[in-house]
Design a protein around this nucleic acid. Sequence first.
DNA 1: ACCTGAACACCGTTCAAGT
DNA 2: ACCTGAACACCGTTCAAGT
Lengths: 231, 231
Amino acid sequence: MTPISSPDPRPAGEKRAPGRPPKTSREAIVACAIAILEKEPRAGISLNRIAREIEIAPMAIYNYFANRDELLQAVTERMMAGLVFNADPAAPWQDKVSAWAETVRAHFQRYPHLIHLLTWEGHASTAWLKHALLITELLADAGLHGRALSRATLWTWNSIMGAINSELSEQETPRTLDDNDVAQLEEPLRGHMKALHDFTKSGRHHDDMFQYNLERTLEALAGVIERERSR
Amino acid sequence: MTPISSPDPRPAGEKRAPGRPPKTSREAIVACAIAILEKEPRAGISLNRIAREIEIAPMAIYNYFANRDELLQAVTERMMAGLVFNADPAAPWQDKVSAWAETVRAHFQRYPHLIHLLTWEGHASTAWLKHALLITELLADAGLHGRALSRATLWTWNSIMGAINSELSEQETPRTLDDNDVAQLEEPLRGHMKALHDFTKSGRHHDDMFQYNLERTLEALAGVIERERSR
DNA sequence: ACCTGAACACCGTTCAAGT
DNA sequence: ACCTGAACACCGTTCAAGT
């Protein structure tokens, strides 16, 4: 019943590290957190849950991260790393903005929790910053500069992220319209409500609306750029 | 040391209600939740916290609400009730949309948590529905109908709520730019970053950006309406 | 009719002790 | 160097018991 020491996997000659050998790593913990979110998008990130999953004591995580927030930061960074965007340099700026928007949309579709991390928990990552600044670059090439460029950049982010945001939140917590509530509405509100309801129940209305939102954004940008150029 | 029964506040002749007298009410619980959020916008809504505040056992709340979700629903409804909007019927539709946007913005500024309740916890309230449908009515008056009206309505919501959303999330969790991160960027990205940073640090850039976002939204809507009219 | 306390399964985090 | 267990202060919720 004497405890058998685990075999040392190090090649002969390599110095054995002092102290207790690690059971896990930063990378494994982050990967586990992401795996949980991919399985259950609504689960949230819990230290206890992760510890259960990789069969360590919850406290072991504190050897790799100072606290929950630092772990969230690492998860954010790691999720963002999966987002790659390559624009065709020859394409007009409208196409590039569209391609950027679709790439970002697809990424947030894969990691719905990411938008929560970025927006509500304030975990801006350098990777996200870089991607966001691509829009600035595109708009600069299109002829904007100075404050007009800053404003147009923020507007574009707002607009595209707003579209992604509303699409995700509707998917995660579908608005179930209470028939009773609708019945209480007066005309013409009830008619409008019904039309809207039918529209959002129609087949591919998410794609339809994202496209529409994107077109409106580009339309507004085109106006700004044109006015700026003719000054 | 005989326990003294509390005096019955009912007028003589009125029948005394059977059973134990209540220590609180639905209204008091909801009011307490809102009071907590007004004091500490980042606090979140906790049954235990509310119970501590009004000095009852946490379980007493379950006499008034089936569960936490039902309480959140009531809080949402109550918060929305404070939002009143009266448009000048004679004003052009652009002014009405602007007035609507500013009213909604001010309300969410007062209750930052409300956007969380509506967007992420899926507590659509009838009061919110009514307000949202006002936009549909405005756009219908401006000449839209059918699918074009539905699309334009959703776009307007998206756009305005996106602007409010980003304003709030920046206020609640201010993006502190890591100098180190900025230094790692290459030109022209670093230059763009710096310009953006300076812009968002300037005095009233929140008001400035909301106005800009609103103008872009109206611009895009004007385009849609014009094309629809000329068909 | 309404309130309470004990109990359960969660959560993040500190601290002291183990290997 | 890394892991563990006990402890603390939270959280929502069920159930049985009190008034």
